[in-house]
Write a protein that binds this DNA or RNA. Structure first.
Lengths: 192, 192
DNA sequence: TATCATCTAGAATATGTATTCTATTTCCAT
DNA sequence: ATGGAAATAGAATACATATTCTAGATGATA
């Protein structure tokens, strides 16, 4: 009933991911993507309404997968495991890690996102703070909000900082990174 | 012997800094800068050879000032003071902090830097690692390189991570940030 | 094998942005 | 006063990149 597709949405997404991992979001021009996939412009715009939404799809997909795993890890294995989740994820997904963790959301979201995408991004952020707040509440302490901020710093900000330098250099993640992250985590969230 | 200048290099640099602090490096288009200063294109290109070198000058200037103060603080006041230097600098220089610490060097340096600028950037990086290595050497310990990496993490990466979330939200830096940074610093570099 | 929705094809267009170019103005030293 | 260097002025140009547009190809189904 119709011509068979020669390219898939994933062909474009993967190619863009590779380009970004290697040379940054700027390098993922439509021309570079089309050239990498070997497709004409028509085939790209047949599948995606614009480059902005295309990049949004790439970013949201990665972020949703990463964050879901992270929150599951936090719930089932606790603070230290969650703090060490990010270095592990970087080792397991070197390309995705560079795309998702080395650049800023704004490099992908710049503007013109659909209501659906804006919603997905907001849900994502809300889901993360929700998970962290729940965990912080379980720890007790006098100020729930102070605890939340401390937990977020220990489990999100510090691990990301530890990992970014290596992502930037494109060097394998040293085992000592886990020590640094673990030391901070234990200091910030004393084990029971 | 010549017409008096209506604009200064600093007018352009300051305007670009303001634009970047408010809306990111992308917002500092030549058109936006010219419009902000109220100058014609000729006056800009009379002073700067290109936008790339112009942004480089802006970034290098800020980075050199920030880093010089940081290293002086480390030398004279030690690890904890150096770790707390960054939050203090952010409070004292809200605009400059967003330009320098919220974005990546690559957002400014992209390409086409002169040999002079490349050299200044390399010197800067070398100077920083030098200062950190010297300090780490003073701490002793079995592995100088491991100590160096730990010091760099405690005094550079962790403070930057602590500060970035607030820079992104453009919210004043809470005092609790200093506690988080201090806790990590003391755990990573036990006071003598 | 005729149909037709889907997909490929890529040239043409639109847009934003950096940069150049050719006057023209201004002011100080003579 | 005036010659000339430095600065302003802004229209014109160059360029990269995203997007549109029209035509044509393909292949499962009736």
């Amino acid at each position: 009933m119709a011509r068979t597709a020669q390219f898939s949405r994933d062909d474009f997404l993967r190619c863009a991911g590779r380009l970004i991992a290697e040379r940054g979001p700027e390098a993922a021009t439509t021309a570079a993507i089309l050239n990498g996939v070997g497709a004409p412009a028509g085939s790209f715009y047949h599948r995606f309404t614009s480059r902005d939404l295309f990049l949004g799809e790439l970013w949201l997909g990665l972020a949703e997968r990463y964050q879901t795993e992270f929150l599951a890890c936090l719930r089932t294995q606790g603070a230290l495991a969650a703090a060490l989740f990010t270095p592990r994820w970087v080792r397991d997904h070197p390309v995705e890690a560079r795309v998702l963790l080395l650049y800023r959301k704004e490099d992908f979201a710049s503007r013109n996102w659909s209501a659906d995408f804006t919603r997905r991004a907001a849900d994502l952020a809300e889901h993360l703070t929700g998970g962290l707040r729940d965990f912080a509440a379980g720890l007790g302490g006098p100020s729930p909000d102070e605890t939340f901020q401390r937990v977020r710093f220990a489990l999100v900000d510090v691990p990301l900082a530890a990992v970014r330098r290596h992502l930037k250099d494109n060097t394998p993640l040293a085992a000592s990174v886990d020590d640094l992250v673990g030391t901070c985590c234990s200091a910030l969230i004393p084990p029971a």
